[in-house]
Design a protein around this nucleic acid. Sequence first.
DNA 1: AATGAATGAGAGTTCATTCAT
DNA 2: TATGAATGAACTCTCATTCAT
Lengths: 190, 190, 190, 190
Amino acid sequence: MAGAAERVREAALDLFADRGFHGVGIRQLAERAGLSSASLYHYMGTKEDLLAAIMRACLERLLADAEAAAAAHADPVARVEALVRAHVVSHAERPRETRVVDGELAALTGETRAEVVALRDRYERVWQDAIDAGAAAGAFAVGSPAVARRALLEMCSGVARWYDPAGPIPLTELADLYAAMARQLLGVRA
Amino acid sequence: MAGAAERVREAALDLFADRGFHGVGIRQLAERAGLSSASLYHYMGTKEDLLAAIMRACLERLLADAEAAAAAHADPVARVEALVRAHVVSHAERPRETRVVDGELAALTGETRAEVVALRDRYERVWQDAIDAGAAAGAFAVGSPAVARRALLEMCSGVARWYDPAGPIPLTELADLYAAMARQLLGVRA
Amino acid sequence: MAGAAERVREAALDLFADRGFHGVGIRQLAERAGLSSASLYHYMGTKEDLLAAIMRACLERLLADAEAAAAAHADPVARVEALVRAHVVSHAERPRETRVVDGELAALTGETRAEVVALRDRYERVWQDAIDAGAAAGAFAVGSPAVARRALLEMCSGVARWYDPAGPIPLTELADLYAAMARQLLGVRA
Amino acid sequence: MAGAAERVREAALDLFADRGFHGVGIRQLAERAGLSSASLYHYMGTKEDLLAAIMRACLERLLADAEAAAAAHADPVARVEALVRAHVVSHAERPRETRVVDGELAALTGETRAEVVALRDRYERVWQDAIDAGAAAGAFAVGSPAVARRALLEMCSGVARWYDPAGPIPLTELADLYAAMARQLLGVRA
DNA sequence: AATGAATGAGAGTTCATTCAT
DNA sequence: TATGAATGAACTCTCATTCAT
């Protein structure tokens, strides 16, 4: 018997990712989780708290992975490649979480939103620092490191919207493809 | 004095882009447009019709621009570059429309949704054909043309989420930056 | 070109008879009459006024016919038979009006309603007087003249709900059938 | 303390019978039932479902009574008389239900309406069969059995619109009166 | 832990009606 | 005569949430 708390989380992931936070009602959530709508409130605070918990967990994992990847590679080229691989793998393996993170930030309000935005900013900073370092070292040929960071991140995040783990592209190949595209995009010197 | 119909459209663009279709109420829409909620219905069918009209108009323009760009360039490299430039400029100049197109497809239902999806698919086909042609001609160094198309499109669409026309990067420079990144990403042979 | 006022009246008859006063919107009325909803108000007061006018006209005609029938026959048996025939013919020829009269009284309010109720009461009084006269004269075998009046009236009004002038029963035959049933119901002495 | 579900049903009966389905708002229903309009929806599906439930229940009871009456009497005269008595008693005892059944059929839509119409048709068939049998056996003197059935049914249904159980006519006497009128109307041979 | 009952607020939409043109 | 524009009020129904059991 899967724990009810886990079922609530799963239901929220499925539904928020597919229909968006505001497109999902508490009763749909409850039905999907196999609970009454009143029982839902034993496993969450408000609906917004549930969203925030999902976003925080996902961003914290993303951030931890990115910081680990950054720490593991002193060389900017290797570092960026490691960031790309981690990001792509995360988005391929947990597309629901990442779609929610990327798309439902506007549904958060007040303090909670500020916290999640801060996490996202920290995550982007890790990327920016790596790219800036490579650019400063002359390892990349990019017109604007800031624009390149945005382009790279968007490009990699898109994976969550189309990649099918049961499809023809294995996850390792996907990571290789994105790593290669990222290197080219950045104009990595041979 | 702007026409009321135009004010309704503007209000919808502002609000749908910022809070998402389901995050916007009919009364907010009306207030923003300077009308009563009842009067809104002189200028639209249902709320969903309003969304569909916005999406269709944007996609049709995007498609027309892309087909024009494709028709203007026989060379795959030039063609892809033209597509990138048109896409980036559109997303920079009309970020609200494009964010709605990219983010609210799930809010559409039934026949309308099918129509909009068909438009989007036609648009993506134009890109795919151009990329496939370049790959077939050996002009690009890409591991997978299909993945490259997705990466490119996501990368360029992201512009609508951050570019500020009043910021430090002029639009022409933005287009140049993305064109360059696209060429590198695709591994265009020198 | 049929007069617009007439078209409004026809539309109201069709729709009120089919869907009931509260089941019909002003826009449906307008569409059926080939006018805009605003233009409707050149030909009527309020929606309720329109209903009242229909009911009054129908009841006044019914009443005039009944009074004429009563005046034409001193003999109670002949008088009741004449009332039955007039009522049945009216309901067969103008089923929409009579269905509205029979079914939408509750939609009227205030003074108007009182007036229409008064008309209806006058109409029923003509019937009651005739039946009472026959009963007093020993011409009828009825347990209760008051109950008999109600039974007779309901029986005859039903015609408006099913009779089809294009069907197998000619109007004259219909009137004969009801006259015969009425005589039998009242136990007219041979 | 009456159950809330029962109070909703009672409120609907009172209001639908008096003002018609379309003449009653959900808030009036709620107020009459002593609930908020939102709470109403714990006890019903849609407003139309509520109407349909009332109509079905009433028609099913009517049908069961009629079939029992028909089964209990082989003789057509006795059978019709039993049908009349059952119908009159039902309409006298439950005038709200029967008025709703007789007057609000047009408010139903789609599948539900078809089901209720089918029930009504079955009910009328029981009457028609009995009358036809009597006519075939020469027990009745009627010009048209089909017209007679309509006349009889309308005559008896009218009871729901005027009979007052607290008035001067006891229910048993009412049934006797209608049975006698029905026999006479049908021209039952002595 | 679980839920039936309850609700104020709000959803999208239509209502009957008015009025300037 | 005719109507597009406009609206406050009402419509049916669902929202997220609470609470007694």
